[in-house]
């Protein structure tokens, strides 16, 4: 009995020293690397808070938030109005960083620096352009020697925010793509093979001659894959970079309005056209005291945290947007 009370006492003292506020979040896996870095850094200076973030995917994050099993959600694609209505409270979309989707390819005899425009890319992904030396590609790359090889489209097999951003871009630039494929996290692809996760697609591109696919920028950089320079609205061919992505967010007209907007194919010079926000979904619920901590963290992430984005290949938010957001979080 003595031993038991001793152990109980020990346990109690252990938990009391760790009496932290536990904040739970769930959602997108795309921003998970930067979020976990942010949480770790933030907890160093704010020892009373513990963040627990489960990267279960955007869809799962939204479902968990609606069921009120987590304090905040996270999503790559903004919530649909239908889902917003299901929530018990209004939900703010707070962008945290920006990401880019790179078009990577692996074709023997084809150097880096391939140039493509939106329509050609859409036709490749729809299986209408099947050879690497197709006239449409040749026209955009007059100085390159294009091999007579089959194009193998590699795409995501699992539902993914990356697919959502790419399909948003291709639907914006090609009405044909919009009609036949549409926008979504899982599409009905007419051609190609599906690989699981960004790493699956990356690996498939790496080992298959003639492959082209879409992956997050970080994966293309880390694996040294050739990326396509895409034609933006201003007519320039821009290779994917964090700078090009930040620029596309800077073209937003209304920083104070609803931020559930698409920034693909933005106008402006130096803009990389396939970019998107990733959001933290913040419920407006005065009863949940933990949200104060989430807001505190968000303010930190939008100021100090932004400097950590670039080393992890995320694009920081434009300064003007950060200012507008700081007002919104108050």
């Amino acid at each position: 009995m003595k031993l038991f009370s001793l152990i109980l006492g020990l346990l109690l003292s252990l938990t009391s020293t760790h009496a932290a506020i536990n904040v739970n979040g769930a959602g997108a896996s795309f921003p998970y690397p930067i979020y976990s870095k942010w949480f770790a850094e933030y907890e160093k200076s704010n020892k009373e808070v513990r963040f627990n973030y489960q990267a279960i995917g955007s869809g799962g994050g939204i479902r968990q938030l609606l069921k009120q099993t987590v304090d905040f959600g996270a999503s790559d694609a903004p919530m649909k109005d239908k889902d917003m209505k299901k929530a018990a409270w209004p939900i703010h979309h707070i962008p945290t960083v920006l990401g880019a989707v790179a078009i990577s390819y692996n074709v023997k005899g084809l150097d880096a620096g391939l140039k493509l425009d939106g329509t050609t890319l859409a036709n490749m992904f729809m299986g209408k352009i099947t050879k690497w030396n197709d006239a449409a590609i040749k026209k955009l790359n007059p100085n390159m020697s294009l091999p007579n090889k089959d194009i193998l489209v590699v795409r995501r097999a699992d539902g993914s925010g990356t697919t959502a951003v790419l399909s948003d871009y291709l639907s914006t630039v090609s009405s044909d793509f919009q009609k036949k494929m549409g926008r979504g996290k899982s599409l009905r692809w007419p051609t190609g093979i599906g690989a699981k996760g960004n790493d699956g697609v990356t690996n498939m591109i790496k080992q298959t001659d003639g492959a082209v696919g879409y992956i997050e920028l970080a994966y293309a950089v880390k694996n040294n894959l050739s990326t396509v320079a895409l034609k933006n609205k201003a007519g320039e061919f821009v290779a994917p970079s964090t700078d090009g992505v930040s620029r596309s967010a800077a073209t937003l007209k209304d920083f104070n309005g609803d931020l559930r907007v698409s920034i693909v194919d933005a106008a402006g010079s130096g803009v990389y056209p396939i970019s998107a926000f990733t959001y933290i979904l913040l419920p407006v619920d005065s009863k949940n005291k933990k949200l104060v901590e989430v807001k505190k963290f968000l303010r930190w992430a939008l100021s100090t945290g932004q400097d950590m984005a670039e080393e992890l290949h995320y694009a920081p938010l434009p300064k003007k947007l950060v200012k507008a957001l700081e007002g919104k979080i108050q």
Binding site: I56, A157, S186, K196
Partner: peptide, 11 residues
């Protein structure tokens, strides 16, 4: 495989 692939992000 389709259940494993699509369930997490099914909207």
């Amino acid at each position: 495989s389709v259940i494993a692939n699509e369930y997490a992000e099914a909207d």
